[in-house]
Design a protein around this nucleic acid. Structure first.
Length: 438
RNA sequence: GUCCCGUUCGUCUAGCCCGGCCUAGGACACCUGGUUUUCAUCCAGGCGACAGGGGUUCGAAUCCCCUACGGGAUACCA
């Protein structure tokens, strides 16, 4: 059996967006699943709209999402060049073949392809048999001498030995043109797989570069985990047929195949994207998590050099299970590292409405002063026995404790919080709070 | 307009090819309750769909036809 060769063929005319990324991803998954090759081919025949920045953004985005290519820019290969702008010689040769066989004619300076008028049958791996007839002759070389997409696309797929064409459904109608060309060249026709499009979150139509959250850059900037973004993208138009949706990429590669691809378009859902990201944040190995979060804390001026490594580790570990996304880390942990932090006014109001927190805190203070073991288990026992002695619910101590030491109404689990903060800080902050509020 | 593709909870989807196991399963979101409180974790429960109409069949989400709706293509863009 011959080796699978698939290609991702973007044109670098804008920033790398979700739709392109997902097409690249499906090609990559198929290549890895079949142990074949992924070819990255840059379709830059439109000199007017191509930019080097867009190309760089594309390569960065591919790598960020963990998609490597076996042939193409920066890696080379035996079927190059991989930029269409450098393949004009090949295109001229192929054009000559069509001329010799009488498939083309010149008109108004442009070269037209003479259509056969026959029904073209696509045996699509996703949609089954699709039949379409190309009615009109079409241009393959512009009057300025440059070749047109349909022509270069087919010529490259032939000359690069592409075996499977996995692309968006928006190309399904174009396929009859491409089939005409493959036939005119008497070339073997690759298998086609037209994958569903990604629709914009609101309104109608497919997702475009201008839509919120459409650019890969957006996820990079907002510190989404790349594995999470990739996992979500896999789920748009493909399903693993398991109840579990959050899967390691190895498993996705193993399961990925054409029968699992859906026919209907999928609407992009930022909430589910965010949910999956949160799951990945929670599962992040501690060393990795620390590496990602540290620069944020430093940048936000929350961490200074004198921070005790041991303490930092405990804080980060404590907060991970409640952290929804990486950029929230500063807000979530600032009070661990700084003595001046803002108090949440609404929570404070609530606290004082509930009773006399100062009295409660004074009692807590004496208990905690005499508590030598500040582990969360020990704290839990102490608070529970205090509650029992006073005939109240243990939870009645939680908000006073939390608010007086953090100025917040929410955060990590209470005993863990007090334990990590440590006896010195807790007592000092409670005392300060009592003084300032009585 | 013409051509092509599609249509299961608000959203992503399982089931459809090979009709009965489907009083249609899961996930996100939402709502309610629980847990270490407010909550951003976690757990339990709830809400919620086979686009409509005709066939075929003992039986249809599953097969066929029509309609409606959605998407795409109709460029000397890719």
């Amino acid at each position: 059996m011959s080796e699978v060769r698939v290609r991702f063929a973007p044109s670098p005319t804008g920033f790398f967006h979700i739709g392109s990324a997902r097409t690249a991803l499906f090609n990559w998954l198929f290549a890895r699943h079949t142990k074949g090759k992924l070819i990255l081919r840059i379709e830059d025949t439109d000199a007017e709209r191509n930019t080097p920045e867009a190309l760089q953004d594309l390569l960065d985005g591919m790598r960020w999402l963990g998609m490597d290519w076996d042939e193409g820019p920066e890696v080379g290969g035996n079927f190059g060049p991989y930029f269409q702008s450098q393949r004009s010689k090949i295109y001229d040769e192929y054009l000559e073949k069509l001329r010799v066989a009488g498939h083309v004619y010149d008109h108004e300076g442009a070269v037209f392809f003479k259509v056969s008028g026959k029904h073209q049958v696509i045996d699509d791996q996703v949609r089954g048999r699709v039949e379409r007839k190309e009615e009109k002759d079409f241009i393959i070389f512009r009057s300025n001498g440059s070749p047109v997409f349909h022509f270069v696309n087919v010529v490259d797929d032939i000359s690069m030995g592409i075996t499977h064409i996995i692309r968006g459904e928006d190309h399904l109608s174009n396929t009859s043109k491409h089939l005409e060309l493959f036939n005119a060249f008497e070339a073997k026709v690759p298998k086609f797989a037209h994958i569903p499009l990604i629709l914009k979150q609101q309104g109608s139509g497919k997702m475009s570069k201008r839509d919120e959250g459409a650019l890969i850059e957006h996820y990079q900037k907002n510190l989404f985990l790349k594995d999470a973004v990739r996992n979500y993208l896999c789920l748009l138009g493909w399903n693993p047929k398991t109840e579990e949706e959050i899967l390691p990429i190895k498993e996705i590669i193993h399961k990925f195949d054409f029968p699992g691809i859906n026919k209907d378009n999928a609407r992009f859902d930022e909430k589910k994207m965010a949910f999956i990201n949160t799951q990945y944040v929670h599962k992040l190995p501690i060393s990795n998590y620390k590496k990602l979060v540290l620069p944020i804390l430093v940048k936000e001026g929350i961490l200074t050099n004198e921070i005790d490594e041991e303490y930092l580790n405990r804080v980060l570990q404590l907060c991970q299970e409640k952290l929804k996304s990486l950029p929230l880390i500063g807000d979530f942990t600032a009070y661990f590292f700084q003595e001046s932090y803002e108090e949440d006014a609404k929570t404070k109001e609530k606290l004082f409405k509930k009773g006399s927190p100062i009295e409660v805190l004074q009692e807590l203070l004496t208990i905690l002063e005499n508590l030598h073991d500040f582990s969360s288990e020990s704290l839990e026992n102490a608070i529970h026995s205090l509650a029992e002695k006073n005939g109240v619910k243990a939870s009645s101590y939680f908000l006073p404790m939390r608010f007086s030491t953090t100025g917040k109404g929410g955060g990590p689990s209470i005993f863990g919080l007090i334990s990590v903060l440590g006896k010195d800080r807790v007592l000092k902050r409670m005392e300060r709070f009592i003084k300032e509020n009585s």
